[in-house]
Simulated assay, not measured.
Amino acid sequence: MNYRHAFHAGNHADVLKHLTLSRILALLGKKEAPFAYLDSHAGVGLYDLQGDQASRTGEYLEGIARLWHRDDLPPALADYLRVVDELNPDGELRYYPGSPELARCLSRPQDRLHVNEKHPEDGRLLKDNMALDRRVAVHLGEGWHLARALLPTAEKRVLMLIDPPFEQADDLERCVQSLNEAIGRMRQAIVVIWYPIKDQRQLKRFYQLLAASNAPKLLRAELYVHPVDNPLGLNGSGLAIANPPWGLEAELLEWLPWLAKQLAQSQGSWQLDWVIEEKKPA
């Protein structure tokens, strides 16, 4: 396992993933009842954008740096940017929150977090970064086993993020397997899969598997920074969201076009549609 997310922290894919995650957390927070947050491939939780790995690629310059300290941001970005602001109180963009830190900052005292990282060194860093928050349990096992290990939870509401490194050829298929396992154990769970947009043939098969999954409903949101048929590199990224909370689709329709324009590198675009539409009662 060689993938290290620090090389890619704060890039356009992180912005889409973390902004959407922040909105789901906000919508869950409208009800007093507690929820559990599960993160299958959590990384270290906090990234130094001026450190060796992030500065070597500079991907954040085409991502979070384009939104930093702008005064024309859509209101939906407020929670997400507030977390970034609080990590950089001197006004210089240096530290960036991974999904565990974002969820930790945007959850409430009654909520619980289970974050998992298999990479030995990153797992130790994750433990250090989460050590002061007693609501957070850090696991150092296989991320694909998280659903069977922890679901169902005592909390009736669950948000689970599946965000593997995509080093293996079957990772897209394993994402859908994990989705099916999570929904099979807690049908009402919100399950979010992040995926890269590169090989269209692999994605076609992935979409077919999603459509055949056991999710009651499943929303797909994609953001492209290059044309989808560009043969080089990461053209964009997507989120498959099972059981999205009410209101999320309308929010995405408001800010996703704006975000695609701001983060475009050669040609920006976006897509939002239902892979599985909710069945209406007979």
Rank of each mutant, 00 (worst) to 15 (best):
R23I: 14
A131I: 11
H5R: 01
G268I: 03
A215C: 03
P244S: 12
S107H: 04
S178P: 15
W194D: 00
A189H: 03
A211Q: 15
Y3R: 10
Q265I: 15
L93P: 07
L210E: 02
P120R: 15
E86Y: 06
L25I: 09
V158L: 15
E101L: 09
H114T: 12
A76P: 01
L232W: 10
N88M: 12
E278F: 10
A182L: 07
Q200H: 07
L223N: 01
D48A: 07
G63C: 08
A264G: 15
L126T: 13
A242M: 12
R135T: 11
D39L: 05
Q267E: 08
A221Q: 00
L38W: 10
W255G: 08
P100G: 07
P244I: 15
W258V: 08
Q200M: 10
I190S: 04
M1R: 01
L172M: 02
A42R: 12
L27F: 11
P109D: 06
R4Q: 06
I24F: 03
D133M: 07
D85N: 12
R66A: 11
Y37V: 15
E173M: 03
I64N: 09
R205G: 08
Q202P: 04
A182V: 14
E251N: 09
Y95H: 10
D199Q: 14
A54G: 12
E173Y: 02
N129S: 06
G45N: 10
G58E: 07
L203E: 04
A33S: 11
F206E: 00
G10I: 00
V44D: 02
L61N: 08
A42D: 02
P97Y: 01
M186Y: 00
